Simulated assay, not measured.
Amino acid sequence: MTRLAVTGAEGFLGWHVRVLARALGWPDPTVIGRTDLADPGRVATLIQGADRLVHIAGVNRGDPADVAGGNVQLALALARGLRRCVSPPGSVVFANSIQAGNGTPYGDSKAAAAATLAEVRPDLIDVRLPNLYGEHGRPFYNSLTATFCRLLADGQEPEVFEDRELSLAHVTDAAARLIGAPAQASWDPAMPLLRSGVRELADQLTAYSTSYRSGEIPPLPDRHAIRLFNTYRSFCFPQHYPILLLRRSDVRGDLVEAVKSYGGGGQTFYSTTRPGITRGEHFHMAKVERFAVVRGSAEISLRRVGHDDVVRFSVSGEEPMVVDMPTMWVHNITNTGPDELLTLFWTNEVFDPACPDTYPEAVDTAARVVVPA
């Protein structure tokens, strides 16, 4: 069990580091904020005895002088704290960039930051990360994938002004590399790359959006396709749910297509649940999972890992609909009716007891409830 201390823990990559630590069953990382970094004594206290210090905080966009100075100043602040630490971290890891030393203010400042930390820790683990994509990235900032996903989720079309080759790693793989997590089916610290042209990426995400608008699952032939689809889905939640299903009725009864999956079967199962009973209370890192209430009434509750707000959906077998669980959101389903609840579940992969991609955690905290419009 590794004790982490992390700078930049509230950002895109930092959040994924915290989620992965939760999935591994490690203690929640000690968070070192920008205010903390201004006080070397405070930094020394926070990193005291940590197994691994991961420096993610940085300045990626803005005035060139602010970018250049910001990255170096953050490294200097952390270095001052390291020098004061009586029991320093077992290892220090820097989330660097493949752009380090490329002659730009950003690239040169990242190289300088690495050199600053290496003066204090010659054993610095300097990880040069490629561009990252993944769930809940920041659109219109430094992620083309997040920007395309945001536009498509809002019903707009992505525009391609310059088609070039992209080399992208999924952010969970990068998090695994930074914290030294062993490889599993849901993450790979080797950071296998998704190579795609900008136009090709836009077309693939547009195809996902077109299929998923009616609840259809597009072809997901490999791990990057699954993770790219999960990235798109993260921008659809919660405003696009529940997804209403078409009911076809005649004298014989009703027919409802709960899952239409192209290019893969996955696994379908159902459960019965007694009144007042809750199922679930876990999250997934990569699995696509669908809930469809067939009979009875229920409440589906979800909370993003590391956050407090709970999103709740009231669903019933009287009105066919599905709710797909976004990755890295804790979820459950509770029978709210007087009779037995019958729920159909579908996942994109067959359950593997040796690698279930299921991590226990309760949804409800002392949180305010968000009810989607």
Results as ranks from 00 to 15, higher is better:
Val371Lys: 13
Val59Thr: 12
Arg177Thr: 04
Thr35Ala: 13
Thr336Met: 13
Arg247Glu: 15
Thr268Ser: 15
Ile277Lys: 14
Arg247Asn: 13
Asn131Asp: 14
Ala21Val: 05
Val251Glu: 15
His136Ala: 11
Arg290Pro: 01
Phe291Arg: 09
Ala79Thr: 10
Ala113Pro: 00
Ser211Pro: 00
Thr231Arg: 02
Leu201Asn: 00
Pro105Val: 02
Glu165Arg: 12
Val371Cys: 10
Ala286Ser: 12
Ser234Ala: 13
Asp203Met: 00
Arg279Pro: 04
Tyr262His: 11
Thr206Ser: 14
Pro64Lys: 05
Gly25Arg: 11
Arg290Phe: 03
Leu82Trp: 07
Val31Ile: 10
Thr145Phe: 08
Leu228Gly: 08
Leu46Arg: 13
Phe235Trp: 04
Gly215Thr: 02
Tyr212Lys: 01
Val323His: 06
Pro242His: 07
Gly25Gln: 09
Asp254Gln: 12
Leu168Pro: 01
His331Arg: 13
Ala68Cys: 03
Leu341Pro: 01
Gln267Tyr: 10
Val310Pro: 00
Leu82Cys: 12
Gly41Thr: 08
Tyr241Ile: 06
Gly90Asn: 03
Gln184Asp: 08
Phe313Asp: 03
Ala5Cys: 14
Ser301Asp: 14
Asp66Thr: 11
Glu318Met: 10
His170Asn: 15
Pro356Val: 10
Val67Gln: 03
Arg248Phe: 11
Val251Asp: 15
Val294Asp: 07
Pro64Arg: 07
Gly41Glu: 14
Arg252Pro: 02
Thr116Met: 06
Leu220Glu: 01
Ala298Val: 10
Glu349Met: 08
Gly69Glu: 06
Arg138Phe: 05
Ala362Asn: 14
Asn102Lys: 01
Leu245Ala: 06
Gly306Cys: 04
Thr358Ala: 13
Gln267Gly: 08
Asn102Asp: 15
Arg128Tyr: 07
Thr104Tyr: 04
Arg121Phe: 05
Ala38Trp: 03
Leu37Arg: 07
Ala366Gln: 13
Asn131Phe: 06
Pro158Trp: 10
Asp51Ser: 05
Ser97Tyr: 03
Gly107Asp: 02
Gly14Ser: 07
Phe12Lys: 03
Gly265Glu: 08
Val323Lys: 04
Glu257Arg: 14
Leu124Arg: 04
Ile243Thr: 15
Leu4Phe: 05
Ala258Thr: 12
Arg34Met: 12
Gly25Glu: 13
Val54Met: 02
Ala57Trp: 08
Arg368Glu: 10
Arg121Pro: 02
Gly197Lys: 00
Val305Ile: 14
Ala183Lys: 15
Thr30Tyr: 08
Ala176Phe: 06
Phe161Leu: 14
Leu302Ala: 15
Gly81Phe: 05
Thr278Ser: 15
Gly317Asp: 09
Ser186Lys: 00
Pro192Tyr: 02
Val370Lys: 11
Asn348Met: 05
Val330Phe: 11
Glu10Phe: 03
Val293Lys: 01
Arg247Ser: 13
Arg290Gln: 08
Pro192His: 01
Arg252Cys: 09
Glu281Asn: 15
Arg61Gly: 02
Pro353Met: 06
Ser196His: 01
Trp329Ala: 12
Val127Trp: 09
Ala176Gly: 02
Ala153Thr: 09
Ala114Gln: 04
Val315Lys: 04
Val311His: 01
Val288Tyr: 10
Gly107Pro: 00
Leu166Asp: 04
Asp352Gln: 07
Leu151Ala: 10
Val67Thr: 08
Asp324Gln: 09
Tyr141Val: 11
Gly263Arg: 08
Glu299Phe: 03
Ile217Asn: 00
Ala183Leu: 06
Ser249Tyr: 06
Asp254Gly: 09
Gly337Asp: 12
Arg223Gln: 13
His240Trp: 11
